[in-house]
Nucleic acid binder design. Sequence first.
RNA 1: GGGCGGUUAGCUCAGAGGGAGAGCGCCUGCCUUACAAGCAGGAGGGCGCAGGUUCAAGUCCUGCACCGCCCACCA
Length: 909
Amino acid sequence: MEQFLPVYDPKEIEQKWYEIWEGSGLFSGRPDRSAVRFCITIPPPNVTGTLHMGHALNLTIHDIVARYRRMMGDDVLIVPGTDHAGIATQVVVEKELAKEGKTRHDLGRDRFVERVWQWKNQYGGIITNQMRRLGCSFDWTRERFTMDPGYARAVLETFFRLWQDGLIYRGYRIVNWCPRCLTALSDLEVERSEEGEPGFLWFIRYPLQEPVNGRQFVTVATTRPETMLGDVAVAVHPRDLRYRDIVGRIAVLPLVGRLIPIVADDAVNPDFGTGAVKVTPAHDPADFEIADRHRLPKPLVMDERGVMINVPQRFVGRDRFAARDEVVKALEEAGLLEKTEEYRVPLGRCYRCQTVVEPLMSLQWFVKMQPLAADALQALRENKIRYLPDRFLRLTLDWLENVKDWCISRQIWWGHRIPVWYCIDCNQGKWEKKRYGGEERYHFFEDAKPFASLTTPKNCPDCGGSHLIQEADVLDTWFSSAIWPHAVLGWPDDSDDLKTYYPTDLMITDRGILHLWVARMIMTGVRFAGDIPFRVVLVHPTVLTREGKRMSKSLGTGIDPMDLVGHYGADGVRFGLIVQAEGSQDLRFHEERLEMARNFGKKLWNAARFVYSVLQSGPAASWKETVDRVATVAERWIRSRCRRTINFVHQCFANHDLAEGGKALYNFLWDEFCDWFVEISKPALSDDRLAPYYRSTLKMITDVSLRLLHPFMPFITEELWHRLGYPSDQEPYLLVASYPLLDLFQTDEEAEETMAFLTQLVRTVRAFKADLGMPTAIIPLVLAGDERQRKAVEENLWWLRFVGRWREVQWMPPGARLPHAFSESVNGAEVFFPLTDLGDVSKIRERLIKRLTELEKERDRTHSRLDNPQFLEKAPPQVVQTLKERLTELETAEQSLRARLTALEELTS
RNA sequence: GGGCGGUUAGCUCAGAGGGAGAGCGCCUGCCUUACAAGCAGGAGGGCGCAGGUUCAAGUCCUGCACCGCCCACCA
């Protein structure tokens, strides 16, 4: 056994153990072993990132579960990895370039992508090292990155199969466009605030070409007047009587002079604004559909940067917001602005850079979602995947039932380039060279014919020509993460890992990415890997600030978990976080909880130090000898309590209720083991007849406790386990030691009952002394009670005197009273304090009176319930019975309380 | 606009039909030979509001209020 360090220093032990563990290879999955498999693929964080509190909680849950299963003997595989996070990473590197006064276009595509790789190689390890610092026992030999060659192959394969199944198409649609990132975004990548953002609703008069029944113009309302330059119609509801006579007539588009029809369309809400709406197909999704229905053109009036194009000279080249002001001004000048109202505008913002997203018509790639959603829906309806809490299943079903096609193309450079090529020769007249974002490139029209290929083709499959141009766009990052579980296990190859570990057991995630990611994994898993990707989706709380706000770096409300690890140790952060993650409630993070966890660590350390010194001080009996003999009540009690704790913790793991499990261990170790058993063991250890057995019990309970706690606090438990000399050839590390099972100890009702009586006795005496201001005094006692109680006290007097600071105890028969003494009753037994001078008894009197009032209240309540004939008639007899017993108890307690009060008065008068 | 959560001690949260709980914080006393990041004792609650069901309601039902999340093209 090593020498024991005097103080607990997390820093010293955490790094050491992680290196030893990782070096031991015990984190690795072992398909060759015959064991129950347990596999999780972690949600890969962005390579660009550093860990935030949400990750810390997520990873802690992963690792607690992983360590538990490993100790239960399973073949555990937790696959870690990172996501290339297309836009996010590109934005970071672009910012770096900006500092050098460059843009990505200065470098060009290839050099820029190279630069991102450099950046990834330099900083990509930060976040995985942070996982290590947290203690995550993941299989780093299987670490994956979503742009690794193998993974890229899986991504392309997925695209290719979708292509072959006819689920990929290209076309003009209104997409969410970020004019800063210069790319399309999926609906899920756009953030919208609940109540919109402050803005205006402008009412614009569109003159009619010819007056109708005296009407000169039609007024439309809009929040985006600049888009009117691209209007192709005015629409009204077909049954709107106000406008019935102008439907089919022609209006003159102000500022432009274009003649546009007035059409009737169901999509118009007659109750909004004036009931007449301008139709701008290229810049509004609803208008796009109206235009389709009425065969109207779709002119673009804004380019990819949000700059006005194809508009009258006055507005050309203006930014969209400047153009807005200018259009309003021009309308005012023309006397066509009827009025302006303040209005909250529902705006979307880019989830990466917070720029206001522009609905913009552009040529994009889409996945037809319905067939994929159908696959997922079927699996979910067959209850193949359990959601915890299960309400999230409903949410997912709703989303899948209403899913819309997925825009998967992104106009950025960092990502998986879409494996589609165009033949220049076959597509004559269907392309042009175009400057795009400062870069010259081929632009293929909607009717150009591309082909998909898994490898870079040399020749056109149709004409054999070699003038091939690859699609410039890359795939949405979520396209590649959608295949994560099977792809990291080796798909599309039929690898050993895939065969062994797929479907995985758990998906542990925040609810924020339930659709963005989890639902899509189910779709691709079912379709391409032939089965659901995971059996259980565990949705954990979202970590909020203590005020209940979102944690975010930009708001300055984020907390760096690594700072916390520095302060409280990884064990402290893990434990402090997990006990806060109760239920499915969001978690308002309180650092005080980490303090609690750190204190717990120190408590554990000191308890172990005590056990260590005890084991040094003399021989321990074997465990067999210890249990085979007639043991003391305290030993039987701690074994019984320990068994209940083991049972409870297993249940908690089964229910994925880790907070409860952690708290149960905290309570067992602190309240029962440290506060009682360790104290009781002190006098036992100075008794030669008991010492060897108590050494043995302390050793055993400590061993079991460290095992139980290891998943939650891996470092300190491993360290203590070694310092106390528990490792063996079969169990070299606590990491792979067996998790305690129920058959280790037996429950012992009798011992628990006796101990409840004895500890209550001790507490009562302590409270009495505290009230008198003499807590450390050693006082004599006289007890009155039945034979069992007398026997219990006498057999345990050796420790009762120590922990309770009693002097001597005299015994009287039950019911007997010691005259001129104050008394308290405990479980029907009576404790007398034969003190000649009680001193100041005001506190005692106060307490007695308070308790009496409470008793009276409860007695009255109980009484009136028992007086109620309906209650007696309808309530289950058992309930009535226990209530009757309760009443008797209350009455006795009240009597003795009154007697005690009287005695107190007599004593002090 | 629709949907889903939440409202219990000063704070963060458990409790899901029959005697209101934990941690932290607070008060009092203790440097008791593992531990003052500790030990011992204690105070503190109309369980959001209003109805209803029931012998019995934090607990079930209805409505309302406030907080938070998700979804939706209402310009």
